[in-house]
Amino acid sequence: MEDDYFSIDSILADNQKIQCIFNKEIPDLGHLWGGSERDIAAQGKYQIPMWMAYIVIYSDWAEFNIPTPFGNRVRNALNAEPRSVRLSSLVGAGGLWYGFGKTIMDMLSDEQANEMSQMLTKTFRERLVEVIDQAQHFAALGPAGGGGGSTGDTAQAFREGLDATERELFVLAQESAKRTKKWYEDYDKGRR
């Protein structure tokens, strides 16, 4: 999540592809996107990974569109009910929707970026309560609870749709609730 050089999450978020439209021809670099053409054509659309997109976009060689995981359709769905959107299926494996959003946000102009930031924060905040609730619920089921404990389809669908950032929070909350619960129930006679 953070902009740390050593952060694996940040590297993974940078691996997302973004569509760029080149505005000039670049000879002999077609191999970079794995295509068979020799040159990059002007007005050509290429999917390039984020880490490369930075330099290409900042040097004014190309423009980019806001990627679909943050496009209007998703935005409307999030406005309607943040908890029903499957963030994990919007972005590929690893699923760092927030991380990806943050990188995109950093490249946008102020106005768009603020809008994006609002969307991300609002979504995060509204989903968080549900994440923690479910985590604590699962912690309460006890050690064997994971397998059989599906409580309704919506809850399960929500869990499957968690993005990696939320997943991490889920685990943290679950562990902590479990530990506290264990302490409340334990009475270690031998210790005293």
Partner: peptide
């Protein structure tokens, strides 16, 4: 405090990242 600390810290961290 101890029970909620881990995920409160983490989520505040995430929010800091997402807020401009």
């Amino acid at each position: 405090i101890n029970e909620i600390r881990p995920f409160f810290i983490q989520s505040m961290g995430v929010l800091t990242q997402l807020t401009r």
